[in-house]
Design a protein around this nucleic acid. Sequence first.
RNA 1: GGAGAGAUGGCGGAGUGGUCGAUCGCGCUCGUCUUGAAAACGAGAGAACUAACGUUCCGAGGGUUCGAAUCCCUCUCUCUCCUCCA
Length: 422
Amino acid sequence: MLDIRLLREQPDVVKATLAKAGVEASAVDAVLVFDEKRRGVLAEVERLKALRNTVSKEISTLKDADVRNTKIAEMRVVGDQISTLDKQVAELEAAQQAALLDLRNLPHESVPVGADEEGNVVLQTIGTPRQFDFAPRPHWELGESLDIIDFERGVKVSGSRFYILKGKGARLQRALIQWLLDLHGNQGYHEVYTPFVVKEQCMWGARQLPKFRDNLYHDAEEDLWLVPTAEVPVTNLHRDEILDATQLPINYCAYTPCFRREKMSAGRDVRGIKRGHQFDKVEMYKFVHPDTSYAELEKLRQDAEESCRLLGIPYRTKVLCTGDMGFASTKTYDIELWAPGQDEWLEVSSCSNVESFQARSTNIRFRPEPTAKPEFVHTLNGSGLGIPRTMIAIMENYQNADGSITVPEVLRSYMGGLEVIK
RNA sequence: GGAGAGAUGGCGGAGUGGUCGAUCGCGCUCGUCUUGAAAACGAGAGAACUAACGUUCCGAGGGUUCGAAUCCCUCUCUCUCCUCCA
């Protein structure tokens, strides 16, 4: 969430910045109105509490029973007033909080302004798409003919948007996960294995709730939520902690499956494994000093790009415009792999700086100096590649005329030396 | 799933109705001493909101009371033993 003080002190700046992402100024005013009312009532109730505290201490020393009883009666009235006002404060605070949680993060000044994905800017395109001397096939055809992806049985077992990986296909996925974790480990990310279900509080902290409720799977009985990305448990690793400044930046990488209901994408990308309800992903995550977060964003992006480069597949990097960026992000790079069979660029990584947006709602801080007051850290997240889309790109770029698939060099040692899936 | 115990500051651990935001120990920071370090000695230090006064925070939420870390209720979590299990 945003800093309420920033809204109070520079409302015009906040409004102007949010306007670039299509947010109405009234959304900011709503927060401020509640805030002002709340602070008014708070001042009054605190004055009464101060009075009660003083008189209560006095009462303990009073010997005269009459005076004592008079004071007690007075304080009983004060106590009633306090509880009434306390309730008002709580209500106003909840309303203010709800309005504040509704505000997205402020786009960074370097982000291009735009209404939707049309406004995104391609920064670079690396590698040359391979020239085929045959018509490249889409991965779903290759997967079925090689019998490494089984769509029908996936649907039989779990419904639409589920599939079964078989044999070399399952192994290719496992190889990718392992290779990526090793690669990120060498890049300085500390590997963690987290639960795949989390408490509701974690979803709020990572700002999945309240906005993305419709996209999440939820176990009502245990009040646990299936993670839509490793970003959720990893963000919450350090919830309510004051981190040691000398340890920053803290870099993590984590493999998890990701579960998404995809309600918003009904009918989109229904073929193949591009958009399933369950997919695997390796995620990179950084807790950093605020001064360094934009430099860290560049490193994060380069680390993600390196995996694309090592796979030997053409990729391009885009900076997302204000209208297409995620809710929590101040600046986002998308990295896309070329998929010749589907004839499209596939988003395999999204690298974002969220500054203190998540740190504030999860209360993750550090001390700039040993005796200084704690400040919020900045956090960044980036996919160390979404696995199914990377698989698509591998299958379609490395396919051969006979329908076999050459295993990229870097993955062979993870597949027992296998060179071709046929 | 059954039985019991517990949750207090970075850690350990006191505190059962009124200067308790909290004794004490360890750890930490600074200083004295020392060539340097250790030891010893001295000093300091929780968090949130607030311009400030002040208010709030002893797992969470509610209640009793003039006043709650302390009494009552609910919940969550942790530990021990048993049961079960990959």
